[in-house]
């Protein structure tokens, strides 16, 4: 692709909605001149600072680690800061941007994440360690770390959550983000309450509500797999007492070196 291609002017179509003044959401077009490497977030910044200061969205780090800028771009959820604009304007030189679906809109791309954070709290995201705290670190093998499949990399951006059709129909569903966090804690050998956690996720609005639609995997900007985490929780939930006993056994050796 030549540089000439990149520097053309394109249309950024944004869903605008300020409940204080608008009766309902409406689309508004802005013209932006692209530069090489420009991302959707860069385009929004250009519009907000030079054309229309009322265009409102959340953002911070610009490189996909803070999770602020998840929004709906050309029909899918992703991070605005990691989406090159050149890929999104193939059709009609236009990219369409809106807020994450299924959540109440506060203003433009800013959504109300109250239910998202409530579900995160419901699964008790903090570790519940044993009472017997050693002087040095607990011993955890690299294999046990790998078994978490990078679940600790989740930035809580909400792209998965608001791509989930189940969430669209049932706001009480725990959601892929909370279940991924529960998975992280259930599988951690340092956690003393796997049975209690599995109990929490087995409730009516827990793992049973996942219909393996897989939108979460497509949406996740970190390449994580909440569906597989949920499957694992489902299987473990069926044998939660045994799993807890195995955990107690493991924790007897939590302060001993991992045998080679």
């Amino acid at each position: 692709m030549s540089n000439n291609d990149i520097q053309r002017t394109v249309t950024v179509r944004i869903q605008r909605f300020n409940p204080d003044v608008d009766k309902k959401p409406h689309m508004q077009d802005y013209q932006v001149k692209m530069w090489p490497g420009m991302t959707i977030l860069d385009a929004l910044h250009e519009i907000k600072t030079h054309q229309d200061g009322s265009v409102t969205y959340r953002r911070s780090c610009r490189h996909g680690i803070c999770g602020s800028c998840a929004m709906h771009i050309n029909g899918r959820n992703t991070l605005a800061c990691k989406t090159p604009i050149i890929n999104e304007v193939q059709k009609n030189d236009t990219v369409t941007i809106g807020p994450l679906p299924y959540l109440p809109v506060i203003k433009d791309m800013v959504v109300d994440r109250t239910s998202f954070w409530e579900q995160y709290l419901r699964v008790k995201p903090w570790l519940l360690p044993p009472d017997d705290i050693p002087e040095k670190e607990f011993r955890m093998s690299q294999e046990e770390v790998d078994a978490l499949h990078d679940a600790e990399a989740c930035i809580m951006c909400g792209a998965c959550y608001s791509s989930c059709a189940v969430i669209g129909l049932n706001k009480k569903y725990l959601g892929p983000h909370a279940l991924l966090k529960a998975f992280l804690r259930v599988l951690d050998p340092r956690d003393t309450a796997p049975a209690e956690r599995l109990e929490i996720v087995s409730q009516a609005d827990g793992v049973a509500r996942c219909h393996t639609i897989f939108n979460c995997i497509d949406a996740c900007p970190k390449g994580l797999n909440p569906t597989q985490a949920i499957e694992t929780l489902r299987k473990l939930a069926q044998k939660r007492q045994q799993y807890e006993e195995a955990r107690r056994e493991r924790q007897k050796h939590l302060n001993e070196p991992i045998p080679s």
Binding site: S162, A165, F214, N215
Partner: peptide
């Protein structure tokens, strides 16, 4: 609505 093969 978020449409996809999974949703269909």
């Amino acid at each position: 609505m978020y449409t996809s093969t999974g949703f269909i």
